[in-house]
Design a protein around this nucleic acid. Structure first.
Lengths: 242, 242
DNA sequence: CGAATAGTTGACTAACGTCAATACTAGTGG
DNA sequence: CCACTAGTATTGACGTTAGTCAACTATTCG
């Protein structure tokens, strides 16, 4: 769940001129492993992802950051990033000086809790992803991540009925679920043939979420979004841009 | 790194009669998904692991809990466990009433930070595990988890020279790294033939950690243990038992 | 000592990876 | 507006890793 509180902190920071809005080109690193970034970073627009890369080897994506997500809130406590973050699409970021952020959370317990919760939610998502990669066949892994992304976008009001912007390539998906791009392609075709997803341009449509969740063998309770049901009324409209 | 502070909190709780020491048999659930456990649980002796299980499907282990580890510190913030925890060996647990624990952390910022750090360390380990499962071949995954467990045990003073208690079965390893027990068996034989590990009874010996880390393509910096080098002097002796 | 759990082996299968060529699409500059 | 280009998607033939099934051995624990 996107925390209004966190969003507001960045909004106010911005109003006071302390938050920087930054445009990052497509497919570039936003944060790099080993850095001690002086800012706390939030995705405002577009998608990003954290990953680790084996030396000269393949990458593994861990978390897809959607608009409203913090990319590095935990770093204050550990000192140094143990992962990198890259832009998956064109991205707009808000960067709040870390001391300022830490000050805000100290003075505002509800905000601190909201940050905590985001961190724990990301951990829960990672547990689910690990489970998918470790135990599920390829098409189920894909059903899993597609459903998860859709539901997260929906909770923030970025969906329209059963369709949702989809800003990620098949190669990215491959690096997320631990497969090759070729195999991802074939399995997506399978899901399309079964009518579980409809993909056109930069859009993903999910005609029957329940069925997709069933295929993915996924109970989305861990996302903390409450009931997941047929496309009804939308939740809140998308939050105001910075 | 095992936090003395956290350990002490439980020790004092125990002295005041608020911490329960519990023996849990081998291979049984300690905490179950969906519960709202009224206690915060620490492993005192033996090994445990968090996992998620697909309905009637295979399990995926996420985190191996060694003596001194908290199993469910994050639950206070989210309300409900989204994973289960089971004993891998005979286990002794310390259980501190959750309100008491929360009270302690509120009144003691250094303790709160220590708990935070443990949670973030577990998240970092999970990222590494996910990367291993998603991108590394079987023998490297095993080298990875064996090295990690050894180093964590070493940091707590549970190793002697190059050998370390090893309380986990090949089936457990399989569920940890996303393979079948049969394949784990074969790959362990491979590691043994190459002299990377020596396994006897419930003991694991790692004659050359650097070489094992190289095979695993693993930089253990994320464990926050400082230098990892040839077997020299031991760190602290094992902490007192409850 | 005997039952249950854990480890080992072999033959066979299936899922996924690799390589390489070909289409498609979107963004770019003339 | 069109042609060019680079990234992305798709296809096919084939190779390899890891899974499956099933038996058998070794160990642990009561």
């Amino acid at each position: 769940m996107l925390s209004k509180l966190i969003y507001q902190a960045f909004f106010e920071g911005s109003a006071r001129g302390s938050a920087q809005e930054v445009g990052a080109g497509q497919r570039h690193d936003i944060l790099r492993k080993g850095e001690r970034s002086p800012y706390v970073t939030m995705v405002i627009d577009g998608w990003a992802a954290s990953y680790t890369q084996l030396s000269h080897g393949p990458r593994q994506l861990h978390t897809i950051f959607l608009p409203g997500d913090l990319c590095d809130s935990g770093v204050s406590h550990t000192g140094v990033l143990d992962y990198s973050v890259m832009a998956l699409s064109r991205v707009r970021l808000a960067c709040l000086p870390r001391e300022l952020f830490d000050g805000l959370t100290e003075g505002h317990p509800a905000l601190a809790r909201a940050v905590w919760r985001q961190e724990l939610l990301q951990a829960a998502m990672l547990r689910q992803l690990t489970t998918a990669i470790g135990t599920k066949p390829a098409h189920e892994r894909l059903a899993h991540v597609l459903a998860e992304i859709f539901l997260r976008m929906q909770a923030r009001g970025y969906t329209e009925n059963d369709s949702c912007p989809f800003l990620i390539t098949q190669s990215d998906l491959a690096e997320l679920v631990g497969l090759t791009p070729v195999h991802v392609n074939r399995m997506l075709q399978l899901l399309r043939r079964d009518g579980l997803i409809v993909q056109g341009g930069r859009t993903l449509r999910i005609p029957d979420m329940q069925r997709l969740l069933q295929v993915a063998r996924l109970d989305p309770a861990y996302l903390g979004l409450g009931k997941v049901s047929a496309p009804e009324e939308e939740p809140d409209p998308r939050p105001m841009a910075l």
